[in-house]
Design a protein around this nucleic acid. Structure first.
Length: 270
DNA sequence: ACAGTAACCTGTTTGC
DNA sequence: TGCAAACAGGTTACTG
């Protein structure tokens, strides 16, 4: 998906277009996403004003006086701001219609979701157990080291677990482990505190740099204006099987961990 | 509680 | 060229 930098890029892109604006209509063309779109979404949201847009992990939260919309982009989702007259294309599942523009949810694989809650969205079942934001002060090496105690799970899947830390998906997990010199298959409980400090720092650096460049576009992701992000140019190992390691020139290897391809340098990472 | 696996979908790429 | 299998940036639910 859209990992944290792509969701943050989307948030920054759509906010000026929809913050403080009134929703004049909702169009749901496909209700079957990862979870069903609420049947009464149109009734719930029509004429509501979006007071704020926030991000928690990879979830986007639209605050209205009546409640919150919770959006997740899944693997292939995107949100675009389009002109009112633009006809919907295939996989354009939900429109948030405003006076002059439409916010359009597009998701070929339909792993994304559009949900609704009247309560505090942070207490929603899908959000309440999320780990810390990686770019906040509560996320640091000591936190990871303590949580990893005695854990046998490999460190890559450990840092991709949203209950450990939010926002780190398959691309940025591989990239931050490479920068930290840590082998992705190493048991999480067998990484020293000092190495976790390096890793936490590198996760923050990679995510921040990716946000600066508008995220990584490999296939599906586009920004709110339909244009790609440019962090793909900065990747060291992700999607680079067989290419020379930028540090030592050893060919980059790929191995499937927890059903996800993991890219690493067997010489630089231990 | 934990680890490992299957599942939700469609589109594109890879391999025979 | 054609067809089937493998694979794709996420996450939950289920199994043992």
């Amino acid at each position: 998906m859209p990992e944290l930098p792509e969701v943050e890029t989307t948030l920054r892109g759509i906010t000026p277009h929809i913050s403080g604006k009134q929703i004049t209509d909702i169009v749901v063309r496909q209700q079957k996403l990862r979870w069903p779109v609420p049947r009464n979404l149109r009734q719930l949201l029509k004429n509501q004003i979006i007071h704020s847009i926030k991000r928690r992990g990879k979830y986007l939260l639209f605050e209205t006086p009546a409640g919150h919309v919770i959006i997740h982009l899944g693997m292939s989702g995107s949100l675009r701001i389009v002109a009112s007259h633009l006809d919907p294309q295939k996989h354009d599942h939900v429109d948030f219609v405003f006076n002059k523009k439409i916010l359009r949810f597009h998701d070929p694989r339909r792993f994304g979701s559009v949900l609704w809650t009247r309560k505090d969205p942070l207490q929603h079942k899908l959000l309440q157990k999320l780990g810390p934001e990686p770019l906040s002060k509560t996320f640091h090496g000591e936190y990871l080291h303590t949580l990893a105690t005695a854990k046998k799970v490999n460190i890559k899947n450990f840092i991709m677990n949203s209950h450990v830390v939010v926002g780190v998906g398959n691309i940025y997990a591989s990239e931050s482990l490479f920068l930290s010199g840590i082998h992705p298959q190493r048991a999480a409980g067998r990484v020293s505190l000092s190495r976790y400090e390096v890793l936490a720092n590198n996760i923050q650096k990679v995510l921040s740099a990716a946000i600066e460049l508008g995220g990584t576009s490999l296939r599906d992701f586009v920004k709110e204006d339909g244009k790609p992000g440019y962090f793909a140019n900065r990747l060291n190992v992700y999607n680079k099987k067989g290419e020379p390691c930028p540090i030592c020139k050893t060919p980059i290897q790929v191995r499937v961990l927890g059903q996800r391809s993991s890219f690493f340098c067997s010489h630089c990472q231990h």
